[in-house]
Design a protein around this nucleic acid. Structure first.
Lengths: 195, 195, 195, 195
DNA sequence: GATGAATGAGGCTTCATTCAT
DNA sequence: AATGAATGAAGCCTCATTCAT
């Protein structure tokens, strides 16, 4: 797939819009083609099949999502600050892109298992990033010893994901970014507190 | 819907089995009917349509799930113990029912939005139960003041849900119940610790 | 496939008519369904897929074709008479069924190789019948010794088939049955004459 | 159509190879173009459409086929020798060109009726040649009087064609040329013998 | 109540052909 | 003359739901 070509991105953007507006099952290839301003057949010059469009949407969008978080964190030396930035970036990016939030939190989850497994692969760098931050916190003595890293990561990701999903389902009627400090406080507590 | 009749429950059980074994998209009404030992048309004497079967599966199964947790918690006076019991029950029930875990964590999420909204309604009592426990903890001074209850609940539910989903996706290759103390410790920390 | 059911035969007959009138590539499943007076989906209660319809058409029609020839020959003790009857039956049956002749001689040959191989299987009993007659003629001293039976059968079948095809292509403008004695004479000559 | 240009023949040869290797329905224009080393659009500078490629393949290849047979026969004065040579040339040429045999005996027959009618036109000189030889044999008293020439020709062509097709279908596992004398003997018998 | 044969709408994908460069 | 990216029509099959028995 040549992802320099403008049509490739045209189709990706069209797919996000169409899926957000029509739902996963209401997004026929012909509808995406029409939104992208190309013929149905043109889709298949850039994507193997319909599933490939969806995986590519996720790859492109989540790739950027993860990269931006990674960039933002790089500047921070302090582990709690890294976590704060991560939460903030996670929430702010999805807050800023209405369509993308709907697609990632609601629509793409209706895909079949095979697609969901591919989506998980795309998320892996993000999950690994979380692992590294937590490990760093443990190494620096910021977090308590003996933390089960994968379990911690599941807690962090599960928390952020559930909060965003709730916000999307409530039709974004409140400000997601205002939640950042409270979420950060909870996560820090979970990692620091020893009973 | 007559839910006293034996066929009603036959069909529910058949649906869980068929969905767990064939996946959401591989679960045709005719397959559920065959597994239940009834004719296709009979399904429609007990359920309005296919979606109604799936909602009912969730209602029945999650109804029991929530009731059992509520019962188990009733005996506890101590709030952290209630949370411990809740986590333990959440994990142990899904550990014990292989089919149900697959269906709730993976397959039913592929349903369309309308079904997912109905499923959320079924979960509401569980979420409310979590809200009450957290509120009780705050009132008793166990947890810190000023907690945003819905946010806390999203953290707790998101954490538990993500952990179970990971365990199902990893084909249950490890013991979920062994995770309970660590998860409990993290959640308590999140609710107690003040920076 | 339940081939007692009336719809099964309704669809077979419809297929012959539609293929004869629209050609192999102009015979959409929906057209066959309409001609048979059933819904498109009903086709798939009786046939696995479109190819299965075509194979079944051939099986049914050529099955009868071969059976009738076999019956007609049974009464004959004389080998040249058997051949005469075989030629006569071959020509008269296809003469009598306008649609069938078009379908077997022209349209079904446009099918893909896999279908053609299946069609060959259906023809096998007919070819074997020819082999037996020729062998009998050799055994009884009617035909010369040393005949290569498969080769003789290919000559006989190739001759009859080509003659019928020419007749169909010429839009049946002459009487095929009138050719029988001449064809018979040639075939007998081929098998008897020693240079 | 410019048939002097090298690309014209490049495309013809590519078509034979692609059809032999991929089958009629697996031979897309783009595949033929790739094999010929030209762009898809270039095909349409030399051929009106896809059907025109296939007709041209047949014209070129069968033109040579027929010419070579005509040349070989010219030297013979004896009619049975002419027939012997014709059979020998028919078999030897197809034996010698593996791809061509598959294309003419199996693949091109899957084409639609309109193409098959055009192919018949290409074969006409060959059929006429057979007619002339048979007529000559009758005139010279070698063959019996009263032969129906078109019918005889159909017998001869049908026999040769069926034998070659069987040989191709059996994946050329035996020597086709070894069959020549037996085939010749049968055909002579058919034309000479009087009951 | 129970059956199950029949229905028919709906969408992904291929590929011959065109045409701007 | 040559290219190859773009076009868009066309059809097989699935499966939730109905309804005559």
């Amino acid at each position: 797939m040549n992802n320099q070509k403008p049509k490739y991105h045209q189709i990706i953007e069209a797919a996000v819009k169409v899926i957000a507006e029509n739902g996963y099952h209401g997004s026929q290839v012909s509808k995406i083609a029409r939104e992208a301003g190309v013929a149905d057949g043109t889709i298949y010059l850039y994507f193997k099949n319909k599933e490939d469009i969806l995986v590519s949407v996720f790859e492109q969008k989540m790739g950027q999502f993860v990269d931006k978080i990674a960039d933002a964190i790089e500047g921070k030396s302090n582990v709690p600050d890294k976590l704060l930035k991560l939460i903030e970036m996670h929430f702010s990016q999805l807050s800023a892109d209405y369509h993308l939030a709907i697609v990632t939190q609601l629509e793409l989850r209706q895909s079949n298992l095979s697609l969901r497994l591919q989506i998980n692969q795309v998320l892996k760098p993000y999950l690994t990033m979380i692992d590294h931050i937590v490990q760093e916190g443990v190494d620096q003595g910021e977090f308590r010893e003996g933390l089960n890293i994968p379990l911690v990561r599941q807690m962090i990701f599960g928390t952020l994901d559930e909060i965003v999903t709730n916000w999307v389902m409530k039709e974004q009627k409140y400000d997601l970014i205002r939640m950042v400090p409270e979420v950060h406080a909870m996560i820090i507590g979970a990692l620091v507190y020893e009973s």
